[in-house]
């Protein structure tokens, strides 16, 4: 609920004000709409981070040994945590996404579904990254928080979440190619009808997002087996 309220306030006050300042011929759509999509991508990143945080908290509060002792494989345990992240994503994005769709308007069901699939793919990718990080830092919630806050600063700032690639200074633009959010944000915007000239090639974005989701979830699974089940006992 708090996230929804934050989104509504950000969009209606800050988004409306900033859209008066940010105008460019390349932005065929109102900047407020551009900003709304960017905010949703940021929320997707945050929700993915929460999933990793749940894991760290489980470890920190002593629930991890219980989860690890349940009669299920580590793969199923890992996937259940990723699915939990996916369900959270659905619930938490529902209202902001509906508001964004209403703001943009004039959409068909295919583009809505495609945008959602893109967000889920991005969400799973971020979840994989965060679960992987959480396995490295699972003994300390503070270490995990420090890593994710630092990472989020880099990943969000150096991306096209808030501004199109063509608006970014050369240094920022180069760095933005390394942020997964760039590909997620640009692909969602393309699907929702923004001008393709200010966005990345959608084929590259699709490939990057799928590769991200598969590789990070795979990496997370490997880390779970190596770092958690394989804790040195002596």
């Amino acid at each position: 609920m708090l996230e929804w309220l934050t989104f509504i306030i950000q969009l209606t006050i800050y988004g409306a004000l900033i859209s008066q300042l940010v105008t460019a011929p390349q932005l065929s759509a109102n900047y407020q709409q551009f900003y709304a999509v960017g905010f949703i991508v940021m929320m997707t990143y945050d929700i993915g981070s929460h999933t990793g945080r749940h894991f760290v908290e489980d470890a920190h509060e002593g629930r991890l040994p219980y989860l690890l002792s349940l009669p299920i494989s580590r793969t199923k345990l890992f996937l259940s945590m990723a699915i939990q992240g996916g369900v959270e994503l659905i619930l938490m994005l529902s209202v902001p996404f509906a508001i964004t769709l209403a703001l943009i308007g004039n959409l068909n069901i295919i583009s809505i579904v495609a945008a959602l699939v893109t967000l889920f793919c991005l969400g799973f990718g971020v979840t994989g990254v965060m679960l992987g990080l959480s396995f490295i830092a699972f003994k300390s919630a503070d270490v995990y928080s420090a890593i994710t806050v630092g990472l989020s600063s880099l990943i969000i700032r150096f991306s096209t979440v808030l501004y199109p690639l063509i608006f970014l200074p050369p240094g920022y633009a180069t760095a933005a190619f390394f942020s997964p959010l760039t590909y997620g944000a640009d692909l969602v915007r393309l699907i929702l009808g923004f001008d393709p000239n200010i966005l990345l090639d959608p084929n590259i974005a699709v490939a990057v997002l799928i590769a991200l989701a598969v590789s990070t979830l795979g990496l997370g699974l490997m880390l779970l087996q190596r770092l958690v089940e394989g804790v040195k006992a002596g």
């Binding site: 040994p65 690890l68 394989g230 804790v231 040195k232 006992a233 002596g234």
Partner: peptide, 11 residues
């Protein structure tokens, strides 16, 4: 006990 429960892995 943690080793037997497969929570820890013996070296």
């Amino acid at each position: 006990l943690m080793i037997l429960a497969t929570v820890l892995k013996p070296t």
